[in-house]
Design a protein around this nucleic acid. Structure first.
Length: 428
RNA sequence: GGAGAGGUGGCUGAGUGGUCGAAAGCGGCGGAUUGCUAAUCCGUUGUAGGUCGAGUAAUCUCCUACCGAGGGUUCGAAUCCCUCCCUCUCCGCCA
């Protein structure tokens, strides 16, 4: 969530900067400013009343200690005063909590402020292409898309997965399952070599965790929720991994912390019914290797650059052509202050498709998840910065390999770096 | 799931319902002493919110909340009662 102080200092500037995301935040900010004033007024009054009540309690204590009878007139009078305060105290407390709650929920619904240097734009058409890598493959035969290739090679089955679960699920089979597993191992090993500490977090998380990273309260309809428990299936490893240190005060000397994690990810994909219905591109359950970093504010820019480089490294190792986009203000995710997308070349679609999204969230998540650090020789605590990026979405990598490495005879060549993992050079 | 024990500050660990935000120790920080290291001594040391005042400012004074979470009893709760969560031991079940 945003720093509530921004509402007091310069709400007009806040509105202006948030509006670059493409929505109009005027009303919600103005409502929040009013709520903020109200809640502080109420809080002040509640505090004052509480102080009076505490004072009475102390006076009784003093009298009793001095030997006054608990039923004596002085004590009785004070008890009466205390009782008289109770009603208004309860009322003020309730009002205070209501306002606090409402304020927090509304504040949590505001997205992060884009970094001032991010290009202002309204949608994905205004993203900036900042790098292109690799040569696009050429084929002297009629190419197939990953769906047809995989089906023909028996790498997966959608009908049976639909029977078992629902549409937008897949079952990987044989070399398909093994390729997926090889990709996961390869990616994790690579990240470990780059200094990331691997973690295997829970795949179910509570609502406090989803609030910490920004999925709640605004995007509840995107998640799968357990009916009988306060538990949700994770939409990305970003959620459990970022929340690992929720409510902690880390030592500055422990930073930066860099984690990588493989997890399945579960998304309802509400509102995308017609899109990418074919193949592995958009599923309710998919695999992803994620990188998550925690660092000092002054280091987050550099950590962001290396995060992108580490994601790109996987594509380079796999020799898959890709490009890097710096997202404009209108296309960035909720928690991101700056975001780079990596897009892999899919020959059958004749275009690049997103395969990684690398965000610098600044202190936005740190504030909602209460992730702080303390400098040993300094007083007080500071919110750290969080970053996360896919490294990579495994299913989309799988699809990209099938399409880019397909051969005229219908086989698929296994990328060099995966051969030792898979134990073969060709999938036939 | 059943029975029992327990959850206190960075850690260990006290705490008869009434100056308890909380003893003590360790650790941390500042200082003194000291050929070096070690040791010793003195001081200091939680987080968050609010607010009047002082200060350019860091900050300080004051108020409030926080002893797992939420309720309740009481003039007053770390302390008593209820519910929930978590940890430990034993039993049951289970990969």
């Amino acid at each position: 969530m945003l720093d509530p102080k921004l509402l007091r200092d310069n709400p007009a500037e806040l509105i202006r900067r948030l509006n670059t995301r493409g929505d109009d935040f005027t009303q919600s900010i103005e409502a929040l400013v009013v709520l903020d004033v109200q809640r502080r007024e109420t809080q002040t009054e509640f505090n004052r009343t509480q102080a009076t009540s505490n004072q009475i309690g102390k006076q009784v204590g003093e009298l009793v200690r001095k030997g006054a009878s608990a039923d004596g007139p002085e004590v009785q009078a004070l008890r009466q005063q205390g009782n008289d305060l109770k009603a208004s105290l309860a009322m003020l407390q309730e009002k205070d909590r209501d306002l606090e709650e409402k304020f927090k929920i509304e504040l949590l619904k505001l997205p992060n402020l884009p970094n001032p240097s991010v290009t202002v734009g309204k949608d994905e058409n205004e993203n900036l292409e900042v790098a292109v890598w690799g040569e696009l493959p050429t084929f002297d035969f009629e190419i197939q898309d990953h769906y047809d290739i995989g089906l023909r090679l028996g790498l997966f089955n959608f009908e049976r997965a639909t029977r078992v679960a629902q549409s937008r699920f897949v079952t990987l089979i044989g070399d398909g399952a093994a390729l997926e597993r090889a990709l996961i191992s390869f990616m994790l090993d690579r990240h470990r070599n780059h200094g990331y500490i691997e973690v295997m977090p829970p795949y179910l998380v509570n609502s406090a965790s989803l609030t910490g990273t920004g999925q709640l309260p605004k995007f509840a309809e995107d998640g799968f929720k357990c009916a009988d428990d306060d538990l949700w299936l994770i939409p990305t490893a970003e959620v459990p991994v970022t929340n690992l240190y929720r409510d902690e005060i880390l030592k500055a000397s422990e930073l930066p912390i860099r984690h990588c994690a493989f997890t399945p990810c579960f998304r309802r994909e509400a509102g995308s019914y017609g899109r990418d219905t074919r193949g592995l591109i958009r599923l309710h359950q998919f695999h992803k290797v994620e990188m998550v970093k925690f660092c000092r504010p002054e280091d987050s820019e550099a950590e962001h650059q290396s995060l992108v480089a580490d994601a790109a490294d996987i594509l380079q190792q796999l020799e898959l052509p890709y490009r890097v986009l710096e997202l404009c203000t209108g296309d960035m995710g909720f928690a991101a202050a700056r975001c780079y997308d990596l897009e892999v070349w899919l020959p059958a679609q004749n275009r690049y498709r997103e395969i990684s999204s690398c965000s610098n969230c600044g202190d936005f998540q740190a504030r909602s998840a209460n992730l702080r650090f303390k400098e040993a020789d300094k007083k007080g605590t500071e919110y750290l910065h969080t970053l996360n990026g896919s490294g990579l979405a495994v299913g989309r990598t799988f699809a990209a390999i099938l399409e880019n490495y397909q051969n005229a005879d219908g086989s698929v060549t296994v990328p060099k770096v995966l051969r030792s993992y898979l134990g073969k050079e060709q999938i036939t």
